[in-house]
Amino acid sequence: MQAFVKTLTGKTITLEVEPSDTIENVKAKIQDKEGIPPDQQRLIFAGKQLEDGRTLSDYNIQKESTLHLVLR
């Protein structure tokens, strides 16, 4: 499924993900596309910070959801 990641600069990245993907996995995909190390990434969805060990389905993130990427 497709999900979108919006950065603070307003850029939107499109990712191909599965509901079973972990947040860690998603961060690795963002690193592949953008070169941002996962340890600098914080992903926010519905106002919550997403934890590495959880999956997209844990957070009820469905296709075409938009996550927000904040860098630390």
Rank of each mutant, 00 (worst) to 15 (best):
I61S: 03
T55I: 07
V5M: 02
A28V: 12
G47I: 01
A46T: 05
K27L: 04
L71N: 07
E51Q: 10
Q40D: 09
V17M: 04
I30D: 00
Y59A: 02
T9C: 12
I61V: 09
L8T: 14
I61T: 03
I44Y: 15
Q49E: 15
K33S: 11
Q62T: 14
P38Q: 13
S57Q: 13
V5W: 02
G47Q: 05
A46Q: 15
I36R: 02
K33C: 07
K48F: 10
N60Y: 06
L15C: 02
Q41M: 15
I44H: 11
V17G: 01
I61H: 03
L43C: 01
E18C: 11
I23L: 05
E51P: 02
T12L: 13
A3C: 15
T9E: 12
E34G: 06
D21H: 05
D52Q: 05
S65L: 08
I13G: 00
E18G: 08
I61A: 03
I44W: 15
L69P: 00
T7L: 15
P19D: 07
H68I: 14
A3Y: 10
E18W: 13
E18A: 13
S20E: 11
F45E: 01
F45W: 10
N60A: 08
F4N: 05
N60R: 07
K63E: 12
N60Q: 08
I30P: 00
A46E: 14
L56A: 02
L50G: 01
F45T: 02
D58E: 10
T9N: 13
T9G: 13
N60E: 08
Y59E: 02
P19K: 06
T55C: 06
N25T: 13
P38M: 15
A28Y: 13
V70L: 14
Q31Y: 15
A3P: 02
K27P: 00
I30T: 01
T66F: 08
Q49P: 12
G53N: 12
Q31M: 13
Q40I: 12
M1G: 04
S20P: 03
I23D: 00
V17D: 00
Q2V: 15
Q41W: 06
E34A: 13
F4R: 05
E51H: 09
D39A: 12
E16M: 13
N60P: 04
A3M: 15
R54G: 06
D52Y: 04
T55W: 03
Q62Y: 11
E51A: 08
G10S: 04
Y59L: 05
E34T: 15
K63F: 08
A46S: 10
E64K: 07
E16H: 11
V17K: 00
E16S: 12
I13R: 00
F45C: 04
K6S: 09
Q41S: 04
E24H: 11
T7W: 11
E64F: 13
Q31T: 10
K11S: 07
S57N: 11
Q62A: 10
P38K: 15
L8A: 14
S20Y: 10
P19G: 08
E16L: 13
D52C: 05
L69H: 00
K63W: 10
K27M: 07
Q62K: 12
Q62M: 12
K63D: 15
A46Y: 09
Q2M: 14
Q41A: 05
S20A: 09
T14E: 10
V70D: 07
T55A: 06
D21S: 06
P37W: 06
G53S: 11
S57H: 10
L69V: 05
Q41E: 01
T7I: 11
D32N: 11
N60M: 07
K6I: 15
L50S: 01
T14A: 09
T7R: 06
K29V: 04
Y59T: 01
S20R: 09
G53R: 09
G35C: 04
N60W: 04
K63H: 15
K11E: 08
Y59I: 04
D58S: 14
